[in-house]
Amino acid sequence: MIEVEVKAKITDFNAVKKMLKKINAEKDHIEHQEDSYFNSPIKNFAETDEALRIREVSVNNISKTFITYKGPKIDSQSKTREEVELEVENPKKIAKVFEHLGFKKVAKVIKNRTIYNIDQYIISLDEVEGLEPYMEIETDLEDGSEFEEELNKIFDIFKKLGINDGFERTSYLELLENKDS
């Protein structure tokens, strides 16, 4: 699966929410996410532009856990990349398995995410602990053959929302790490 994703820094969530209503985006839900990131014992994911995480998601007191691998970004203007995700049962046991295999937990990213939908696009308003507000727009493709077309459509949605700058290719993990250095 290829995840086509663009992120932008936002100054005013309320203004964005009004614009989302104007373009008929529908509010879906609010979720709390805690992402634990791991580094490989055989290569440095920061150097290879990959990521391995365990994500714990809570929506209305219902929790789910996912393991996600993200490959290197495939273009110069977005966060588009291969993504493989699997729902699992117990985050502590999965972390233990990773650690026994030599993976090291390197960081935790905590956020509250308000999710909207418009057509096949997911729009997320993200409040990340330690960062300013951000918004992501994404969609998934079976393969990467149409990613440029989808990327243009995502940028069109940003334009309709009045967002023409503040775009960011780095992950929340990288933004937090860069903030501390």
Score class of each variant (00 low, 15 high):
residue 9 K to P: 03
residue 137 I to E: 00
residue 133 P to H: 00
residue 149 E to M: 10
residue 158 F to D: 02
residue 45 F to Q: 05
residue 174 E to Q: 15
residue 19 M to N: 09
residue 57 V to M: 12
residue 69 Y to M: 08
residue 150 E to R: 15
residue 39 N to V: 02
residue 111 K to Q: 10
residue 35 D to T: 05
residue 52 L to F: 09
residue 3 E to Q: 01
residue 73 K to L: 02
residue 11 T to V: 11
residue 39 N to M: 07
residue 122 I to W: 09
residue 165 D to F: 00
residue 31 E to G: 04
residue 107 A to M: 14
residue 120 Q to M: 10
residue 36 S to A: 14
residue 65 T to D: 03
residue 91 P to Y: 04
residue 33 Q to P: 04
residue 166 G to N: 01
residue 153 K to F: 10
residue 67 I to Q: 08
residue 35 D to R: 07
residue 76 S to W: 06
residue 112 N to I: 11
residue 52 L to K: 09
residue 118 I to K: 10
residue 20 L to R: 00
residue 87 E to F: 09
residue 103 F to C: 00
residue 41 P to M: 02
residue 50 E to V: 07
residue 25 A to K: 02
residue 51 A to R: 08
residue 89 E to A: 14
residue 83 E to R: 05
residue 32 H to R: 15
residue 179 K to Q: 06
residue 160 K to C: 06
residue 56 E to L: 12
residue 155 F to S: 03
residue 59 V to H: 04
residue 155 F to A: 04
residue 86 L to Y: 15
residue 85 E to S: 15
residue 9 K to H: 02
residue 9 K to W: 02
residue 50 E to N: 15
residue 87 E to T: 10
residue 19 M to I: 01
residue 71 G to E: 00
residue 8 A to W: 01
residue 79 K to C: 05
residue 46 A to C: 06
residue 41 P to S: 01
residue 103 F to M: 09
residue 97 V to L: 15
residue 115 I to F: 00
residue 144 G to V: 09
residue 1 M to H: 10
residue 5 E to C: 03
residue 50 E to Y: 11
